[in-house]
């Protein structure tokens, strides 16, 4: 008998005492963030800004027309000289920046990425309650390594992408795509349970919320 058959057989024998009916799952938990009236867009965006800021990221609300200068400022204040941009990113966003823009076409090597200071990306969705941005490798986001290896991440979030809480957002995502949920910069609490910001992922995260 294969290991597979043995394990499945043992599982069936182990639960033979239980009724076969599916266990009913209550789902009484909130669909949106506690304290936010469903549909209150301004409160949702404000909560997102507050929560991302609490993680130690820099967050700014920027009208779309001002994005190019806001992106340039975000890169300059981190002293970035090179930035990678994923395929599908609006070229206007980096147009005002004087540094070197590297496109990931053809794909940069890991060493080239490591030698790149920053990444500028869009996102697939965002969650206000947990201060999370979600990347799904779609247009303007690129493969996962782009938002991982460079030390500075500038991410543009459109207000309408921000959902109130996780239950509201998860249904919008396609799990067949590689998905990364980012809640603040890389961190660790492994030394005496004290939070230290910045380990292997980008140590500096700037989120530009635009409308």
């Amino acid at each position: 008998m294969s290991a597979r058959e043995a394990i499945l057989g043992r599982i069936r024998a182990a639960v033979a005492d239980l009724p076969d009916d599916p266990v009913e799952v209550p789902r009484a938990y909130l669909r949106g963030a506690p304290g936010i009236t469903p549909g209150d867009r301004e409160a949702t965006v404000e909560l997102f800004v507050t929560r991302v800021t609490e993680y130690g990221a820099t967050v700014r609300r920027v009208p779309e027309a001002d994005l190019p200068t806001a992106v340039a400022a975000a890169l300059d204040e981190r002293a970035a000289r090179t930035a990678v941009v994923p395929d599908g990113l609006d070229p206007a966003w980096t147009a005002a920046w004087k540094g070197q823009v590297r496109r990931d076409v053809p794909a940069l090597s890991t060493a080239q990425l490591d030698a790149t200071d920053a990444v500028v990306s869009a996102c697939a969705a965002a969650v206000a309650d947990s201060g999370t941005i979600v990347l799904d490798a779609g247009p303007g986001q690129g493969r996962r390594a782009l938002s991982l290896v460079p030390d500075v991440h500038v991410c543009v979030v459109r207000e309408e992408q921000i959902g109130s809480a996780l239950p509201e957002v998860i249904g919008r995502l396609d799990p067949r795509r590689p998905i990364t949920w980012i809640s603040g910069p890389s961190a660790t609490a492994d030394i005496e349970m004290i939070r230290v910001q910045g380990v292997h992922g980008p140590r500096r995260l700037t989120v530009l919320v635009t409308h």
Binding site: R51, Y55, A107, V127, D129, S130, G131, T132, A137, R143, R144, A145, P175, R176, R177, P178, I179, T180, W181, I182, S183, G184, P185, S186, A187, A189, G201
Partner: peptide, 21 residues
């Protein structure tokens, strides 16, 4: 686990993806 609303990174993947990972 750590007293955070969400951990900094949650990754999900399904099998393999061409050109990514």
């Amino acid at each position: 686990a750590t007293g955070e609303r969400m951990a900094p990174y949650t990754s999900s993947w399904t099998g393999t993806t061409d050109g990514d990972g």
